[in-house]
Design a binder for these strands. Structure first.
Length: 1108
RNA sequence: AGUCCUAUAGCUCAGUUGGUUAGAGUACUACACUGAUAAUGUAGGGGUCGGCAGUUCAAAUCUGCCUGGGACUACCA
């Protein structure tokens, strides 16, 4: 009994302390490194880390995202795979530039004047790693295993060199081209934006803009005369006729060069009034949209008009199809010096046909400003219409636009009294009789994701990647990727691929990977550099040609601006070539990580080959068109391969009310505070078990407390229970010498069977990237099966005096369950599981270096699991009956009755009989056979079978069957069939097609649930009553022992004051009582001093408990 | 505007190929149990399965439309 404690017992250990201890253990043990190194040569499981940017702080959603990554990497490691996890940092891009500008209090304009590009880029380089320490801290505290000692960093020369290599490969395949396109452009940031950037969450926002329906006056010429010749109305004049076109961006109206109509859309021409000037006018708009502006009740009531702009009366003068009015010319809406006709590079101001025109909005006539809309540009080019660009790159009107010159089209400068140009243009139109309807219009409009300012569409020179050329192949290969959830792959990602446009690679910025293309001034000769070696060779050529100073070659190479811009190369024909000034989209950086992280193809080609493509990646669902896309695009174009085989896209973390977390709402959750309070394991477990990774998670602190209490508390108690008794008995697990399963108790075999069923289920779930299913299954096993059934029912087995064979088996069984359960949990809860594992095995070898047990089918006995679940059901029913009759469990009862329809059922129950009897404190089970005559039977049709057979008659048949008499049921049971009449037709019902249940035992107290019926004999005989007394006495003594803080091994002596009824019982149950309470003797006396008074089922007992 | 996801008890979630009393946990209430106490058992209240139609003998489950929540896309005037 005094043996050294093998298993540490923890009275007050906290999850936080455990995690601290395990963290420092991992550090000194180098467990993570070992978990990779020890598996050298084993099959690999390839994981790619999507690089975070360390210039922002980590949030709780990062903990979720990284927990998901960690789980599968740990799981695969447990399975024996080698899982390398190279960390990485995303270091380029606008967010970094913005935060540098903020901290230096400068703007883009100041770069090159107030600060040199060299200095600026140096600042960026520093800024990038601003919060690296915080990130390292959360990484460690949350238990995310990733190699941060050798991360890939996107701004390093090696990384850039790999990116250049990839770009050169694309160039060689003719996938790179330069073109002018109307692109999203942010005047505030001074740069074009890629579609990826517009896809950033929050980029599209509902805004209220001033929208204008403008009237474009028809020119009276041969064409218009011909078109309108059919109109006979005396009041009609072409000079007074206008087209109505709607726009939400009135600032584009001065740049208008055409109007587009739909060929087969019908337009009407009406005589009415201008609602602002009240002058009589003729207007043309789509018939379908007519009712938006006019009320039919006001037809032909021109004389009623009250000059108030309301209830506009009208007279319809005629109607035309779009194809008829195409070609009509109109007067320029807002003529200025800068948009005079000679400034336009083509024909202008006429009606053209566009297939994109619809009648869902506006007037069915579209205002065309080719410089500010992609469709506009396209349709204008097709029709030989020229373009006007009256707005410069800063977002303000150029000189020569009258009163609007120099004004910003949106508030790009945060002017305190910014006045909307849209409004002023609208006012001007109103005054000039050119406005028909000015109103606020709410619509979704893209904003620059960093400056928060509205984007405009603007003609820009750009380099593109021709991804459309491999569209089909990308779709094909996408089908081989296992998406979790599937709908993200087929739906969101699949549709994105179907509507693919070329990837705009250019960015006019300072901090990023420079485009590796040099060109002669005329653009006739160019070169795309694919390596540093090649660059050096070209530099040498240029030095030889005299374009480049000799010293350049010996300078330290930095593949950033402005250094690369200073390099002038020489073309084949001897002309100087300068670098195309653009940087490339940062998304290309991250999409290049499978290659660039290994500096492929310059180094590590073997490593690369072994780690491409990835087996698994995981990021937020918002990366679908981001990282998931760029990885896929580059892999397909250059390697004709997928970049990843399995991808988990996780949802958002919302607050507990389902609102998005945001700093402004103040509902963000601090990951450090959470981990500090509840521990990383609890946080991880809660997030994984609460909702599937791809569903949004409603983060609620109460859920964390529940997880902590239920799962971890229960497991902790189960272990402590084991440890306490194992230590008392000096039990030490001896893996080589365990009790054979056949010699163990039924309940041992049951829990082992359950355990292996669990291993099977959990392994399958992890393999299917379903961590939530795994977590929930583990939780159920621990709480319901292991703790609430196995441990609870087996407690007595652990108490005996010596280490019996049965007790040894119980220890071994519980030990095995705990070891395997923590192994299954370890990917999700890496700290607690490691701590428990090491405690259970008295080892200093981490659980994360162990090999996952494989489910042993031979140990799974479904029949056993079935009969145990019956035992649980029966016990529950008996307890509920006791409850109903208010007979406490401590009072033994004689028997329970169970209707038994077949013998196999009896055989099954017999095997678990002892467990049931002990659990419900009853002496025996009696099975009631069919012939007893006291079982009432209930019959229920099997809808699934009968429904198929009877079809429409099902309902009637169900009524008939359910009302079967006892005789009819008997007949069916005997003959196996019975005929019923439905609407004068006869149908045979077979025994298989119904379910016969017993739901009552006449004359008994019964309970029924899930098809199980149990009756309880509540007669309390004298013997039972006395035994009840004995039990009650034991209970009081036990409670007293506990209150007195006796050790569970302390022996006692009982001093009893003589009592008429209880003396007899104490004597006849002396052995039992002494055994149960570890009493050496019971001593009687007429008077016991210091005795405590107990109420034993109504009898008063004065008793003193004395420790020996 | 379109595409996709989602809606089940106060809260968090299950609910197989459609099959007849819609479940669990949690919270609340009451009573038990307790040599595991960070527990446990039993009982109770709590649901128009977002709404409306349809298919079917039978719909939480399938279809359509609508509403709320969310994400994404857009050249959208």
């Amino acid at each position: 009994m005094s043996a050294a404690k093998i298993y540490p017992e923890f009275k007050n250990s906290s999850q936080q302390q455990i995690e601290k201890d395990i963290l420092s253990f991992w550090e000194t043990d180098k467990t993570f490194e070992k978990s990779v190194d020890e598996r050298e040569g084993k099959p690999t499981f390839v994981f790619y880390e999507g690089p975070p940017s360390a210039n922002g702080l980590p949030g709780i959603h990062h903990v979720l995202a990284r927990a998901i990554k960690d789980i599968f990497c740990r799981f695969k490691t447990l399975q024996g795979f080698q899982v390398k996890r190279k960390g990485g940092w995303d270091t380029h891009g606008l967010p970094i530039e913005i935060s540098v500008e903020k901290s230096l209090n400068i703007t883009k304009k100041d770069i090159g004047t107030k600060i040199s590009v060299v200095e600026y880029n140096q600042k960026c380089r520093e800024e990038v790693m601003k919060y690296k320490d915080v990130w390292d801290d959360i990484t460690q505290k949350m238990g995310y295993w990733v190699d941060l000692n050798n991360p890939y960093v996107t701004f390093e020369n090696n990384y850039i060199e790999s990116v250049w290599y990839l770009l050169q490969q694309l160039y060689k395949k003719d996938f790179l081209y330069k073109g002018k396109k109307i692109q999203p452009y942010s005047p505030a940031a001074g740069t074009g934006l890629s579609t990826h950037e517009l896809n950033q969450p929050g980029a599209y926002r509902d805004v209220k803009d001033t929208s204008a329906v403008a009237a474009f006056k028809v020119i009276n010429d041969e064409k218009s005369k011909a078109v309108f010749s059919s109109i006979k109305d005396a009041n009609f004049s072409i000079q007074n006729t206008s087209f109505l076109a709607w726009t939400t961006t009135p600032w584009t109206l001065p740049s208008n060069t055409a109007l587009a109509v739909g060929a087969n859309i019908e337009y009407v021409l009406v005589n009415t009034f201008n609602p602002y000037t009240h002058l009589p006018v003729h207007l043309i708009l789509a018939k379908d949209l007519f009712s938006k502006y006019f009320n039919i009740e006001n037809e032909n009531k021109l004389d009623d008009y009250k000059n108030d702009g309301k209830n506009l009366p009208f007279v319809t003068l005629g109607s035309f199809f779009g194809k008829e009015i195409a070609g009509i010319r109109y007067e320029q809406l807002l003529p200025f010096e800068a948009n005079s006709k000679d400034k336009i590079d083509g024909d202008a101001f006429k009606v053209i046909l566009g297939d994109f025109v619809t009648t869902s909005d506006g007037t069915g006539i579209v205002h065309i400003a080719p410089s500010f809309g992609a469709d506009d540009m396209k349709v204008a080019a097709e029709n030989g219409i020229g373009s006007l660009t009256l707005v410069d790159k800063e977002g303000k009107f150029i000189e020569g636009v009258g009163e609007f010159s120099g004004r910003y089209v949106k508030d790009y400068k945060n002017e305190p009294n910014y006045i909307s140009v849209d409004i002023d243009i609208s006012v001007k139109l109103k005054q000039e009789n050119k406005a028909f309807k000015i109103e606020k219009y709410e619509h979704s409009y893209p904003h620059c994701w960093r400056t928060d300012k509205p984007v405009i569409y603007y003609p820009l020179d750009s380099w593109f990647i021709k991804v459309t050329a491999v569209k089909e192949r990308m779709m094909e290969l996408n089908k081989t990727i296992n998406w979790k959830p599937e709908s993200t792959g087929t739906g969101r990602f699949g549709q994105w691929l179907e509507n693919l446009v070329d990837w705009n690679l250019s960015r006019s910025r300072f901090w990023g990977t420079p485009l590796n293309i040099w060109r002669t001034e005329d653009g006739n000769e160019e070169i795309c550099i694919g390596s540093i070696e090649e660059l050096n060779a070209e530099m040498q050529k240029s030095i030889d040609a005299g374009f480049l100073a000799k010293e350049k070659l010996s300078e330290k190479l930095d593949l950033h601006k402005p250094f690369v811009d200073d390099l002038i190369l020489v073309s084949a024909s001897g002309k100087p070539m300068t670098r195309e000034s653009d940087l490339i989209d940062v998304w290309f950086d991250s999409g290049a990580m499978p290659y660039a992280q290994w500096h492929y193809p310059f180094d590590n080609t073997d490593t690369f080959k072994k780690s491409f493509p990835a087996d698994f990646i995981a990021e937020g669902v918002d990366q679908t068109r981001g990282w998931f896309y760029t990885l896929h695009a580059i892999a397909v174009m250059l390697f004709d391969s997928v970049a990843y085989k399995n991808v988990v896209s996780n949802g958002l973390v919302l607050d507990k009310n389902g609102n998005k977390m945001s700093k402004s709402k103040g509902n963000t959750v601090d990951p450090f505070a959470t981990i500090n309070k509840y521990g990383a394991d609890v946080t991880r477990w809660y997030m994984i078990s609460n909702s599937q990774p791809w569903d949004n998670l409603k983060f609620d602190e109460e859920g964390l407390a529940e997880t902590s209490r239920k799962l971890f508390g229960t497991l902790y108690n189960s272990y402590n229970f084991f440890a306490i008794y194992a230590n008392i008995d000096g039990f030490v697990i001896d893996a080589k010498n365990t009790t054979p399963l056949t010699e163990r108790a039924e309940i041992d075999r049951w829990v082992i069977s359950k355990l292996h069923s669990l291993v099977k289920e959990v392994t399958a779930s992890y393999e299917d990237y379903e961590p939530t299913k795994a977590a929930r299954a583990i939780e159920e096993f621990v709480v319901e099966h292991l703790s609430n059934w196995y441990v609870r029912l087996c407690r007595r087995r652990f108490w005996g005096n010596e280490l019996s064979q049965d007790k040894k088996a119980a220890f071994e069984t519980l030990h095995e369950c705990l070891v395997i359960v923590v192994q299954l949990m370890s990917p999700i809860a890496p700290f607690f599981s490691d701590w428990l594992y090491q405690s259970l095995l008295s080892t200093k070898n981490s659980i994360h270096l162990s090999t996952l047990v494989i489910a042993d089918e031979k140990l799974i006995d479904l029949q056993l699991e079935q009969r145990m679940s019956w035992a649980q059901e029966i016990s529950s029913l008996v307890l509920s009956l006791r409850k109903k009759t208010k007979i406490k469990v401590r009072q033994p009862l004689q028997k329970i009755l169970i209707p038994a329809i077949d013998n196999s059922f009896i055989a099954q129950i017999d095997k678990v009989k002892e467990l049931i009897l002990a659990e419900v404190n009853v002496k025996e089970i009696e099975y009631i056979g069919d012939t007893s005559g006291i079982i009432s039977k209930k019959i229920k049709p099997n809808f699934k079978l009968l429904g198929k057979k009877l079809g429409g008659k099902m309902k009637l048949a169900a009524d008939i069957i359910q009302q079967f008499s006892v005789e009819q049921i008997q007949q069916l049971e005997q003959n196996g069939t019975i005929d019923i009449q439905i609407e004068n037709e006869t149908y045979s019902i077979l025994l298989d097609e119904v379910e016969i249940l017993s739901d009552d035992i006449q004359g008994w107290l019964v309970a029924t649930n899930n098809g199980m019926t149990v009756a309880l004999d509540i007669t309390i005989t004298e013997t039972l009553k006395n035994e009840g007394f004995a039990r009650e006495i034991v209970n009081k003594i036990q409670t007293e022992r506990k209150e007195a803080n006796f050790e569970v091994t302390d022996k006692i002596i009982l001093h009893v004051q003589n009592q008429l009824v209880l003396n007899a019982i104490l004597n006849s149950y002396k052995e039992y009582i002494c055994n149960e309470t570890l009493a050496n003797d019971i001593l009687f006396a007429d008077n016991v001093s210091n005795a405590k008074e107990f109420d034993i089922n109504g009898e008063i007992l004065n008793l003193l408990i004395q420790k020996v």
